[in-house]
Design a protein around this nucleic acid. Structure first.
Length: 391
RNA sequence: CCAGGGGUGGCGGAGUGGCCAAUCGCAUUAGACUGUAAAUCUAACGGGGCAACCCUACGGGGGUUCGAAUCCCUCCCCCUGGA
């Protein structure tokens, strides 16, 4: 059973709150998924995951597959048991992001969001310079010297074995370096792969929910075409992937091209986006779900999220006080000081990143809750302004 | 007192006549991080100048040499054995 109820809409924008039901689980939206790439969180043991304030998690098909975790998940009867998260909504990514991140992204050392304006001429004709072979049939990875194939059918099969609530269609995430031509061809292939994903998912519709993925990069006509094509498919929800242009400000605009076309009654998951400004911009455009490595990765990199902005622990390491007196995370409640956290970091004591990870997860859970409440109260814009002072 | 080993930048530790203001690691400082190749990466790290370059530096002092962290003498200090 899968259902999405929209509860509130913010007038003057596409922002909305809702609840997604999947079996006996649910998630209030907007919500951001914490990324558990290989079915566990970095720096946190699985037996504490159920204590986290987040309602939504995402696991990666490529990494659980290559690390041979999927048989263990199956042994335990599925991902919810494996992670000790029986009452949380879990999604799986298809491996489509790795087609980019382990290929073109790695080769050219670029993320899916460009940090500065890119001179595409420098990358002309480099679309084919990719250590990963992408063809109509599927994608060949090189894993430990061996060839590893991923395609819609294989990805669906693996995701069925993992058993998450939400599954992603197999796609290719394109980069801001790719040309219009490449992005268009890739998008069209992703659309064909969506049909194959849907076909391979037949018979599993009652157990798991397959989301189609909109691509099209930074190009308006491609984004709109993709939204029309993907939006017309009989799937319970949609994801929006790929790159969003040269500069951060473009994200809201690009997402808006898509959400204005997608069927409004179905949930939208914006893949891999989690900067706070971007979350506000995307929620305004009607995005319901997010996932991002920022809270957990930056915690390990000693960056702490607070209402007063991102605080770099290095600059506060001499303080004998907790990160945020008002925070409900374990470390802040216990009064773990920033001096202590720094000492643990220096000593490679895992407690350091455990506490900072818990803290940032708490921050993002609170942020998303505040966003929901602000939409309910019609105060989304003022909350956004509040956060934009520091973010 | 004898024998041997050693004293290098905040710390550890290379270097053993010129390419040495001195490899590297740690710490420090400044950035980055968006469907996790990431507890990671990039950069700075004696002082001064935009720069070519200049000044002060390898325990202290003296010497050899065109040139010394590197060789010699001497003093101080540390470690290990022996009396």
């Amino acid at each position: 059973m899968f259902n999405f109820d929209i509860l509130n809409k913010q007038s003057g924008s596409r922002a909305r709150t809702g609840i997604i039901y999947s079996s006996d689980r649910n998630v209030q939206t907007p919500e951001l998924a914490i990324v558990a790439t290989d079915a566990q969180l970095r720096s946190l043991p699985n037996d504490v995951l159920h204590e986290l304030p987040s309602q939504y998690f995402i696991v990666n098909t490529y990494h659980t597959y290559t690390k041979q975790i999927i048989p263990k998940i199956e042994e335990q009867g599925g991902i919810h048991t494996y992670m000790g998260l029986k009452d949380r909504i879990i999604a799986t990514d298809s491996g489509g992001f790795q087609v980019f991140s382990l290929g073109f992204g790695q080769k050219h050392n670029i993320g899916k969001i460009a940090r500065e304006r890119i001179d595409k001429k420098l990358f002309e004709n480099k679309d084919q310079e990719n250590p990963i072979q992408i063809a109509e049939e599927g994608v060949r990875f090189n894993f430990n010297g061996k060839e590893l194939m991923l395609n819609p059918e294989i990805s669906m099969d693996l995701q069925h074995k993992i058993g998450a609530d939400i599954m992603m269609a197999f796609d290719e995430c394109t980069s801001p370096l790719n040309s219009y031509e490449y992005t268009k061809n890739s998008m069209e292939r992703t659309h064909r792969w969506l049909d194959r994903s849907i076909a391979a998912h037949r018979g599993f519709e009652e157990k798991q929910n397959l989301f189609g993925i909109v691509q099209g990069g930074e190009y308006q006509d491609l984004r709109e075409e993709s939204a029309r094509v993907v939006g017309s498919k009989d799937v319970p929800g949609f994801a929006i992937g790929g790159s969003f242009g040269d500069f951060q400000e473009a994200l809201g605009t690009t997402v808006g091209w898509v959400t204005s076309i997608l069927p409004p009654e179905k949930p939208r998951h914006l893949l891999g986006i989690g900067k706070i400004r971007d979350i506000f911009a995307a929620v305004e455009q009607g995005v319901d779900l997010f996932d991002c490595v920022i809270p957990t990765r930056e915690a390990r990199h000693r960056m702490l999220y607070t209402k007063k902005g991102r605080l770099y622990l290095r600059k506060l390491k001499h303080l004998d006080e907790s990160i945020d007196a008002h925070c409900k995370c374990e470390g802040c409640r216990e009064g773990v000081t920033m001096r202590q956290l720094w000492e643990w970091f220096l000593a490679y004591d895992l407690r350091a990143s455990t506490y900072t990870t818990l803290h940032n997860i708490q921050f993002y859970a609170d942020l998303m809750r505040e966003i929901r409440e602000s939409i309910e109260m019609g105060k989304f814009d003022s909350l956004r302004n509040e956060y934009q002072t520091y973010y």
